[in-house]
Write a protein that binds this DNA or RNA. Structure first.
Length: 358
DNA sequence: AAAGCGTGGTG
DNA sequence: TCACCAAGCTT
């Protein structure tokens, strides 16, 4: 049995899609703003995790102007917990650009969409096909997997060099009369039927034309280079307080969690930095001795895609007379707990706050 | 080209 | 506990 013809492949997927698709709100609209928002949210993110965020964003920011007019902190706060925060920063940047440079109108083609910050080849193709029915194939993890299995492609899907092979294949398969449905269908098929683990080959409409199925390679394809192990980091957070207010600072370095707020941070190369050492680093920064210094009796472990963080927290009560020094030379700002609730924070920081201060 | 960027779910 | 994975993009 040969590989499926383009028309058999697309017809089978589209028929499957009409029967199995999930009802999702961004499939009910052709508003490029709504579609763009949903695609940014869904980058490297499961529908189940992204859906509530999409609904909250659309409620708070029904139009691109509403988003453009919001402060960055509010956008990041609404994004809190979704991860990959550059998506939210770029989202906000692009909303302002669309309003200021394009009069609130999104670019109308794949090539023009590609110029937007945070919009790469996948997202540009998704918006162009879903909003404008431009016949350009999307290429995401699902599409790589489906094509590698059905057509027997052995290229390492993690290597940028192999992108062209899949891109050309996908674009040779997309039907010109309903590119939007085809793109939705192939991704949905990958997400529900042709899954990474334990795909449902028994009831697969492509079973008898699928290279991987016919050759017993379903679990072998696609080929994917293994991810490198992540680095370990050790954080000691000093939660400086004056009365019941707490000092926090917006992260501006080119590091994790850029744009989010955390506490005075001492990072070390090894775990178990002794409390007196941490304390002395603070006193060095303050040029002043500190009296109340309480280690929190709980170590937090936090796993990111490329880092494992061990965090220790210390509660430090400061007298009023140190405020000027803390604010001017360390750059921290004092917030009430109510104000802190409104700041965008990483999950690790939020967990600590819930456990010990909120 | 390869590395860096989050978080939550799953086997 | 751990590795892998998820509608990727940027530098």
């Amino acid at each position: 049995m040969p590989a499926p013809t383009p028309s058999f492949f697309s017809s089978a997927l589209i028929q499957w899609y009409h029967r199995h698709q999930r009802a999702l709100p961004w499939r009910e609209t052709r508003d490029p703003y709504a579609i763009w928002l949903s695609e940014i949210i869904l980058q490297q993110t499961r529908v189940k995790q992204g859906l509530p965020y999409y609904l909250r964003f659309m409620e708070r920011f029904p139009t691109v102007s509403d988003l453009a007019n919001a402060p960055q902190d509010e956008v990041l706060r609404l994004w809190q917990g979704l991860g990959y925060y550059s998506r939210a920063r770029n989202l906000h940047f692009t909303a302002k650009q669309v309003v200021e440079e394009f009069g609130g109108q999104f670019p109308g083609t794949y090539q023009e969409l590609l110029k937007l910050k945070g919009v790469g080849s996948y997202t540009a193709a998704a918006i162009a096909s879903f909003a404008y029915r431009e016949p350009v194939a999307v290429l995401d993890g699902n599409v790589y997997r489906v094509l590698a299995r059905v057509f027997g492609k052995y290229e390492n899907i993690a290597a940028p060099a192999s992108k062209k092979v899949f891109e050309e294949l996908a674009n040779s398969l997309i039907p010109q009369d309903e590119p939007d449905t085809f793109n939705q269908a192939i991704m949905e098929f990958g997400a529900i039927q042709c899954t990474p683990v334990a795909p449902d080959c028994l009831f697969c409409p492509l079973q008898q034309t699928c290279f991987a199925f016919l050759n017993g390679l379903v679990n072998a394809l696609p080929l994917k280079e293994k991810a490198k192990s992540s680095r370990q980091r050790f954080f000691q957070y000093l939660v400086l307080q004056v009365g019941d207010q707490v000092y926090m600072k917006k992260r501006t370095q080119n590091d994790i969690w850029m744009g989010l707020y955390d506490f005075f941070l001492v990072e070390s190369e090894a775990p178990g930095l002794p409390a007196p050492e941490v304390k002395s680093q603070l006193e060095q920064a303050l040029q002043e001795a500190v009296a109340a210094f309480t280690p929190v009796d709980q170590t937090y472990k936090h796993v990111l895609s490329h880092q494992k963080i061990m965090a220790q927290f210390y509660l430090v009560s400061l007298p009023n007379r140190l405020r000027k020094e803390v604010e001017e030379s360390i750059g921290l700002s004092l917030y009430s707990l109510e104000a802190i609730e409104e700041l965008p924070k990483a999950v690790l920081i939020n967990s600590f706050l819930k456990d010990h201060l909120f």
